[in-house]
């Protein structure tokens, strides 16, 4: 074990070539995670509510679409967006944008079912009761359903964040300079001690993910004690 390869390159692992160049390394990993967590949260909410309110052919189309996003590897979706968006739509999507788009779509597809399951778990009588009180469907959703469903979803949302954090490493394949990419750069440059480098990088990811895992466990315990 040789720790100097880590200490010599520590700043590069954490922020990449910044401030001389663009921000990279662990900082970019965190940014990718936060952006895709926020976007996948919005998509998950919208698609989850739609799963609960749509009927007939539109519901079938939505289910098929969400199923496709959950059936393909994240890597394939990144390739689709990165290599095909320029050809198909004339859009030149930068690497960071491709990764955030792919992770948000896949994360959103998983979250949609969490949101949908949360909504379905509420007794149907609550919708009837709200309607008897003169609330519209939209009001019921926001004032009655959301406050009960959202806190209970918290643990599985946090688990999605863990998956997202790990999936940001796939940005490596299209050359986005996040933590994994920076690690291979350092490894290729020094040519020795790859085990030390990848172990250290794994520890950095572990700190991010295990933090979320602790949070998920706490939230799960807190909401388990709530009355159903």
């Amino acid at each position: 074990m040789n720790p100097s390869v880590i200490t010599d390159n520590l700043i590069y692992f954490l922020v990449g070539p910044w401030p001389q160049g663009p921000l990279g390394g662990a900082a970019l990993t965190v940014i990718l995670t936060v952006l895709s967590a926020a976007l996948s949260g919005v998509l998950g909410l919208v698609f989850g509510v739609l799963l609960s309110v749509l009927r007939g052919p539109w519901l079938a189309v939505l289910r098929l679409g969400l199923g496709l996003f959950r059936a393909i590897p994240v890597l394939m979706l990144i390739f689709w967006i990165y290599f095909l968006a320029p050809i198909a739509f004339g859009l030149d999507v930068p690497g960071v944008g491709s990764v955030v788009a792919a992770l948000s779509l896949i994360g959103g597809a998983y979250l949609a079912h969490t949101v949908h399951a949360g909504i379905e778990a509420l007794p149907r009588g609550q919708w009837a009761a709200a309607s008897a009180l003169g609330l519209s469907r939209r009001q019921t959703l926001w004032l009655v359903v959301a406050p009960q469903v959202l806190p209970r979803m918290a643990p599985s949302v946090v688990n999605q964040w863990i998956a997202l954090t790990k999936d940001t490493s796939l940005a490596y394949v299209i050359g986005v300079a996040e933590l994994s990419f920076v690690a291979t750069q350092v490894s290729n440059r020094v040519m020795v001690y790859p085990a030390e480098i990848y172990l250290f990088v794994a520890v950095l990811y572990f700190i991010l993910c295990a933090g979320f895992e602790l949070a998920a466990g706490r939230l799960a315990r807190r909401y388990r004690s709530l009355p159903a």
Binding site: K166, D167, S169, S180, S187, Y198, V201, F206, A210, E213
Partner: peptide, 13 residues
């Protein structure tokens, strides 16, 4: 340890 680190990094290791 295995659940909270990316598969890609594990493969590189």
């Amino acid at each position: 340890a295995f659940r909270n680190t990316p598969l890609l990094v594990q493969l590189f290791f």
